[in-house]
Design a protein around this nucleic acid. Structure first.
Length: 352
DNA sequence: GGTAGACCTGGACGC
DNA sequence: GCGTCCAGGTCTACC
């Protein structure tokens, strides 16, 4: 019998808001199903891949069976998206509602524990209501909407690779690269494991996944996540995620990784739960110019942005990000109504 | 330490 | 339909 797990999120948790809070929710293998406000994806577990559907509790009378997506499907036809009349407050379920995680196969006890860890990481269920209150105390602008959590991947490796696919490329290419990585290298469409990517020939990555010159860097990066000659992986996730490790040390280490520069390192810091740094890219410059009214060269605006977000201290990234995210939502409706293949083309700096 | 140019892909544009 | 140009962040060579 297929496994169903119930996860108790923090009291202020809203699936539609907290999943649709960062661009990675539209990158494969994630699939946000707009009509049912449900997240689908494939998780790679010890016993093999398992598809999971994460949703608020189902109402009495609703079908209890798992409804797999057709292979290759990118969307499901259904009812129109819920009303977005809310002006950043109303969603189709209540804050703190238990999350139902339905799998397409039976999971062993070990796999259930593994799945809980991965889903908790992805949804940031470890950032409780007190954590959110800490952010809102520093930046009260986001208290009414409750924005605080930023969606990420079930594994650190996936977050790092996704960040590399977002560098020096327009958003549609990032969407495409992730789709192909999952289709070509992932088991049943899951995100490829470090071991699989480390064994892949750069030429295959370039030709079939369209990653371009990133091919060798991605293979080298994957190798750093794999144990070698009985030694632990060079990338020590526990050390990097440990809040006792200084931000400066983490940032310095990340920049030594292949394909990771200042922007990518800043972004990965956020994905590790470290919000004290910005990740400055062309979108940041555009934001500085068009929304914050900054003038001057890109270098000058970068310095002004640093000064502008200084007052938000340990929460700089989130204060910056939700300004940017609100800008996107004002022009493209609420993020929980976005369909992957449609936003793939709309979601670029040049379009705004 | 700072900077110029190469690295690829895919969208936009002109013909 | 084809060719050309351009955006995007990192890396390397060079000053």
């Amino acid at each position: 019998m297929p496994t169903t797990l119930t996860l108790r999120p923090p009291a202020d948790y809203l699936l539609s808001r907290d999943v649709c809070s960062y661009g990675y929710f539209v990158l494969a293998p994630n699939l946000w199903h707009v009509p049912t406000q449900t997240l689908y994806r494939m998780l790679d577990l010890a016993g093999g891949p398992a598809a999971v559907r994460i949703s608020p509790p189902f109402k009495p009378g609703e079908p209890r069976t798992y409804e797999p997506l057709p292979r290759g499907a990118t969307r499901i036809e259904g009812k129109p998206a819920p009303s977005v009349r809310d002006g950043r407050g109303v969603f189709p379920h209540k804050p703190g509602a238990a999350l139902t995680c339905r799998f397409d196969r039976t999971l062993t006890r070990e796999e259930q524990a593994e799945a809980r860890v991965q889903i908790t990481r992805m949804l940031r269920l470890d950032e409780d209501a007190d954590h959110a209150a800490g952010f809102h105390a520093v930046d009260p602008r986001w208290a009414p909407s409750g924005h605080c959590r930023l969606f990420r991947s079930p594994t650190f490796f996936e977050d790092v690779v996704k960040t590399v696919t977002s560098c020096n490329v327009a958003w549609p290419s990032t969407v495409n690269m992730n789709l192909r990585l999952c289709e070509v290298l992932g088991r049943r469409g899951a995100f490829p494991t470090p071991q699989k990517l480390a064994r892949t020939r750069p030429g295959t990555l370039r030709a079939r996944c369209r990653v371009g010159y990133r091919d060798r860097r991605m293979v080298e990066l994957a190798r750093l996540f794999c144990p070698r000659a009985g030694k632990p992986p060079e990338v020590n996730e526990a050390y990097l995620a440990d809040q006792a490790t200084p931000d400066d040390e983490v940032f310095k280490f990340l920049k030594t990784l292949p394909g990771i520069g200042p922007y990518a390192a800043g972004n990965i810091m956020m994905l590790l739960g470290r919000y004290s740094r910005l990740a400055i890219d062309t979108e940041s410059i555009r934001h500085g110019k068009t929304i914050l009214g900054m003038k001057g060269t890109d270098g000058a605006i970068t310095k002004r942005l640093a000064r502008h977000y200084e007052p938000f201290g340990e929460h700089r990234f989130r204060s910056y990000w939700f300004e940017l995210w609100t800008f996107y939502e004002d022009r493209n409706q609420r993020a929980n109504t976005w369909v992957r293949d449609e936003v793939a083309k709309a979601f670029t700096a040049a379009k705004f």
